[in-house]
């Protein structure tokens, strides 16, 4: 069977859920090998990758991969593609992932498809475009197909194998190190699930009114084990940190359940949540455009509806 390279998404040494999804998907296309780029590879990481079927893990360890964004990662992948001739490369559809795919595509002169939500054994990708109104099937016709895949599009299924670590050392060019990270501001972790990967997202918008208003949103999220999201109106006002913004210029989420509270439904917000499986809307304005997408909507004051819902969930737990 042909080898499919799966680029591991990791943070603080732990493998993100999207990687188990990508490995699951890769198993339907060939034999998955994982590619770990950056420091922090450990037995724990190997265990997760093995659990989802990565027989081989290529490890490119080194600080240069976090000190210089994107370009060095593309060089590692280009060298692996040249050496291993895989049948495809799968990368998570994050901002970094897409840019890595873009640079890699130029290096290896191969087509790239971004934001796939599925890929067939024959390499035909499914995309949901134009705000979910159109489903497109497409494929790469030149080179080694590169796909970036949206989180939450394949349920992860274990298929344990023993993993072998294969160290790769690729000399990184001067060009790839031209951009240098000189500082990092990591916002406080909130202990909730990762926004892009969460099964349930509870969001608040301008209707939340003030930073303190987010307490009711967080309480609802916690009663459901959900992540918290926000509209740009809320992040721009400084009521909630920017990295929780959902939408075109924020995160794209596709959870099982998306709950929008006090969000009108501008096209840029929809762009980031439209493909959620079930959508719930609470808004005091019955004309709010987001009601068009709602599976269930409540016209009312979120400060009445949301706390009552939270109480009710706790009661029924």
């Amino acid at each position: 069977m042909s080898e499919v390279l799966v680029v591991v998404e990791h943070a603080d040494g732990s493998v993100k859920k999207v990687t188990s999804e990508l490995l699951t998907l890769a198993r339907t296309m060939g034999e998955p090998s994982a590619v770990w780029i950056g420091p922090g590879y450990s037995d724990a990481a190997a265990a997760v990758l093995g659990e989802f079927g990565a027989a081989k893990v290529y490890v490119a360890d080194g600080a240069q991969y976090i000190d210089h964004p994107v370009a060095p990662r593309a060089e590692v992948l280009a060298s692996l593609v040249a050496d291993q001739s895989p049948s495809a490369v799968l990368i998570a559809s994050s901002a970094d992932g897409k840019e890595t795919a873009g640079r890699l595509a130029i290096k290896i002169n191969s087509g790239v498809i971004t934001d796939a939500i599925g890929i067939s054994a024959e390499g035909i990708a499914t995309q949901s475009v134009f705000g979910g109104s159109t489903v497109v099937h497409s494929k790469v016709t030149k080179g080694t197909p590169i796909f970036t895949v949206r989180p939450n599009s394949t349920p992860p299924v274990p298929a344990a194998v023993t993993t072998t670590r294969v160290d790769v050392s690729v000399p990184i060019s001067e060009v790839a190190m031209k951009a240098k990270v000189t500082g990092r501001t990591v916002a406080q972790k909130d202990g909730r699930p990762d926004l892009s990967e969460a099964a349930i997202v509870v969001s608040g918008g301008r209707g939340v009114g003030a930073p303190e208003g987010f307490a009711v949103i967080e309480a609802l999220a916690d009663s459901l084990g959900a992540a918290v999201g926000a509209s740009r109106a809320a992040t721009d006002a400084g009521w909630y940190p920017h990295q929780y913004q959902v939408g075109q210029t924020g995160k794209t989420v596709s959870p099982q359940l998306y709950m929008a509270n006090g969000i009108s439904g501008a096209i840029q917000h929809r762009a980031g949540m439209q493909t959620s499986k079930t959508i719930v809307v609470v808004n005091k304005d019955p004309e709010a455009p987001l009601f068009e997408l709602a599976d269930f909507g409540v016209v009312g004051d979120l400060f009445k509806v949301v706390p009552q819902l939270t109480e009710e969930i706790k009661k029924r737990a």
Partner: peptide, 22 residues
Amino acid sequence: AWTVVEDFAARPPKVAGTVVTD
């Protein structure tokens, strides 16, 4: 082009959900 569209289809518009007034 390095990629080709095989086919595409409009997804049927979402069936309107239930909206209740509080």
